[in-house]
């Protein structure tokens, strides 16, 4: 554990010195993603100027949902997105060989080798949206709800990571996964704009179990507004455990099928 943490610290140091070369791009992720979520806030603000609720959700709940999604996205962009996203190209080009020959878990290195501190301000920006949502919602969350919210944010960030790893493990077996990544992007984009409580029938099955993007921000938002049953919380925890086990097993399975392309 200590060795891994020291390794992550070294990766972070290297990444920071690399990022200083491209100073304009340093906060690029922050500007792009904050503009995306600001526009989403504008969208829901415009809708709520015409209606009182969407499904059963009030404006406050929706703001918390947007803030929570933004927070998950911020953790993703800051910690692991740029690392995990590079996996397919490394497999295709054969650069993945370098990761296998080093005395460190390749997934650990790939996950943390591109930590992007430029996106870190997004975390504060997102917390600001959640707090604003809480004030619009009225009433305050209990300390227990806040603690559970933080725990589930971390669990959902893990679920998000699992989904990314699962999709980016496919290049071990197929030549191109561009369309699958496009599909991931489209489904993620859809669930970013629609809270899970709105899904019904087949869509609920798809976005709550098969591609569980629908629960990522919905469950924490329901926890902090204390509008979820214990069964819902247990269900979400089980989904995270299932997908984590699946992602790690699939990754190991993929490693066994790696055919080096470079030598």
């Amino acid at each position: 554990m200590n060795k891994s943490l020291r390794f992550i610290a070294v990766l972070l140091k290297m990444k920071l010195s690399h990022m200083m070369v491209f100073r304009i791009s340093f906060f690029g992720g922050f500007f792009v993603d904050s503009s995306l979520f600001l526009l989403q806030l504008l969208m829901f603000n415009a809708i709520y100027s015409q209606v009182d609720s969407i499904g059963e959700w009030s404006k406050g709940q929706m703001l918390i949902f947007v803030g929570t999604f933004s927070l998950l996205n911020a953790i993703n962009m800051t910690v692991y997105f740029f690392g995990v996203n590079g996996i397919p190209s490394k497999i295709k080009s054969g650069d993945f060989d370098h990761y296998l020959t080093k005395p460190i878990n390749p997934l650990l290195r790939l996950t943390f080798e591109n930590i992007n501190l430029g996106s870190a301000p997004l975390v504060l920006f997102s917390i600001g949206i959640v707090i604003y949502g809480m004030s619009v919602q009225g009433g305050s969350a209990s300390p227990a709800a806040c603690l559970l919210y933080v725990i589930f944010i971390l669990l959902m960030a893990l679920l998000y990571y699992d989904m990314e790893v699962l999709i980016r493990t496919l290049p071990f077996f197929v030549i191109s996964t561009d369309s699958i990544e496009q599909l991931e992007c489209a489904m993620f984009d859809l669930c970013m704009k629609i809270p899970g409580v709105v899904f019904k029938g087949i869509f609920k099955l798809i976005f709550y179990f098969i591609l569980p993007y629908g629960i990522m921000a919905t469950i924490p938002a329901q926890i902090i507004t204390e509008s979820i049953s214990p069964v819902g919380i247990i269900y979400a925890a089980i989904v995270v455990i299932l997908f984590t086990v699946l992602a790690l097993r699939f990754w190991k399975f993929g490693l066994r099928h790696y055919k080096s392309a470079s030598s």
């Binding site: 209606v51 499904g55 704009k193």
Partner: peptide
């Protein structure tokens, strides 16, 4: 992927127009 925008409208506005 043209369907995703329509799906978005169908689900979100379906919930709004439900009431």
């Amino acid at each position: 992927f043209t369907v995703t925008r329509i799906l978005f409208a169908y689900i979100l506005w379906g919930a709004i127009f439900g009431q």
